[in-house]
Design a protein around this nucleic acid. Structure first.
Lengths: 342, 342
DNA sequence: ATGAAAGCGCTAACAC
DNA sequence: GTGTTAGCGCTTTCAT
């Protein structure tokens, strides 16, 4: 039976167990500097026997290097940020950098707190969602002296670098596609905007493009709370009761649009001829619905990958300063809920 | 324009700017020990002006306390672990502890690596999914000398504490409910088991209960990769082509069962009379399907909360040693896809 | 190829 | 209420 130690093991313990100086033990364990094969084996054996786990706190303090990348995102619950994380992971896995995630719940105050916490661990870089931050947050980020990549959005002024799509343009593009398809009475459902800047920008771009065609939104509804099927279902029912003449429904995310879709199908409504619909994000999870949804993918994984890559390049000094803003282009999937151009 | 500093600020900088000793500055910033109102204000002002962010690395090394809780889970992509995280957050938010997440992708090797990385930051506690770990992992956990809570599952021997449900019992319970409802030709669809011990245990419990009723599974299919609607749809179609006489389909998670449900509805099959179905997890996200799915909730949030609570209690020394294993009881929702008892 | 000394930025413990 | 001293466990640097 292994005894639970009263004190965690240190390099010194390994040093004594192997009869090699602490310094050499450190070199072996970090695979850094020349050590003879024999010494190396002795040390490795001793470390394994003891079950030694190096203390990164001490290591980081001494070396002034922390192989952590702070990733600050609003939420984990709607499937879009997990996909960004996967992109980040793809790249960081090849390096010795490790992502550490902080959640803001779309709250600037919480963002500030989380950021402060994160920065106090002196990470090697920060990836943070959005371009809108409190003054204090911007100040902290600037003062940190580490690479800062703002992701998801490029409609604004980045602190350092930005990788994302133009949500304004995305909204506009969807608006244009809808109008070209001949829809005229359009309803919108989405999250309450003040919190979610990207949803707001999409909405703005959307209404702009409608305005150009001389169309105004017929009805709209904003909700708060998680984006679930049932939310989309209920909002859609309510809206159609209120405004029975709608011929198109634009949703700020795929999950609620899927809820709406299921409701419309149940009602036996002809999609996309009587009513068309579209969502946003292009979440893979929802592939397999009875009717393929029109949506626009937000390049989530690519954004994560590109952001992580920039961090790596900056740390290696191979970053090209001209590439401070990377705009990706979302592709529109017409699915089967947006009728053919007429 | 703020100048990017060549070197991060230290306590000494705040000390000099405020004319107060480093020690007192430290006391103010940690709200620890008595400091006069005047000194406190001077220090706070100076710190804010400079934009000082404390160095937790140094603080942790000096105090030998790290307010981090390592949370090690298999995946973030199927909505069950994010909910566990929320439960953990609920509790930790009230304390000064911070969760740090590591992902294992259900791979023991990766779990070992992630665990090693995590432990090298000397966290105050570990919450880890499952009871099955490599020998090396178990050894590390035991040797760490910190609270270790294994979550999700209680069918096995915990290292220290365990919070979860009995998946074997859950599978058995669902099997019994299905049999009582009069179904006889039962198909099973789920993840490839060797990776996912909890799915395996549910499956074992399930087949056990069928066996007791003298029934054997008629057909089964195991898949790997993400659990998406389309997966459930395709597997269901294939299975029904292969075994058209099935009258019940049991899925190892809600997402694939939702895919199956949508497929069956499209085919105009009478649910739950011709064919019944059930999933597992009770994910909120899926509320709002055309027909409410039979499922069993896995107490995800409660598990997270309970695990975090135990960590807190252990750190405060208020943990009652008799409560090392906490078994929660999943509730069966019959939905509308499991016909009434006959 | 290996070791010795100094110190990373902070806090515990003890003075005053 | 405030200051001083001595480390925390490692890595850097320089010596051998």
């Amino acid at each position: 039976m292994t005894q639970v130690p009263r004190r965690p093991l240190t390099l010194r313990d390994v040093s004594e167990a192997s009869g090699v100086s602490e310094m050499t033990v450190s070199r072996v364990l970090r695979a850094h500097g020349d050590v003879s094969q024999m010494t190396r084996e002795k040390v490795l054996l001793a470390a394994k026997e003891l079950g030694y786990v190096p203390n990164k706190i001490a290591g980081a303090l001494a070396s002034q290097r922390v192989n952590l990348v702070a990733v600050i995102i609003p939420s984990m619950s709607n499937m879009v940020f997990p996909e960004v994380m996967m992109g980040i992971n793809d790249i960081l896995e090849e390096t010795d950098l490790q992502p550490v995630v902080g959640i803001t719940d779309y709250l600037p105050d919480k963002e500030e707190k989380v950021l402060f916490q994160m920065l106090s661990w002196r990470p090697s870089g920060v990836i943070i969602a959005g371009l809108e931050h409190s003054d204090a947050s911007r100040k902290m980020l600037k003062a940190s002296g580490i690479p800062v990549i703002e992701i998801m959005d490029i409609d604004g002024t980045p602190i350092d670098c930005a990788v994302g799509i133009s949500h304004r343009r995305a909204g506009r593009k969807m608006g244009e596609a809808i109008i070209q398809s001949g829809y005229k009475k359009i309803g919108f459902m989405g999250t309450k905007m003040p919190l979610d800047h990207r949803a707001r920008k999409r909405f703005e771009g959307f209404t702009e493009s409608l305005a150009k065609a001389g169309i105004e939104i017929t009805d709209h509804e904003f909700y708060s709370g998680g984006s679930a099927l049932v939310k989309g279902r209920d909002m859609t029912r309510d809206m159609l009761e209120r405004s029975p003449d709608l011929d198109f429904l634009y949703y700020s995310n795929d999950m609620i649009s899927a809820g709406g879709l299921l409701y419309l199908l149940e009602q036996g409504i002809d999609i996309p001829n009587k009513i068309g619909l579209a969502g946003f994000n292009g979440v893979e999870l929802l592939q397999g619905l009875p009717v393929e949804l029109a949506t626009m993918d937000a390049c989530r994984k690519e954004i994560g990958q590109a952001a992580a890559k920039i961090i790596c390049d900056k740390l290696e000094g191979t970053f090209v300063e001209s590439d401070k803003i990377l705009e990706l282009t979302p592709t529109l999937s017409r699915g089967a809920t947006l009728r053919k151009l007429n």
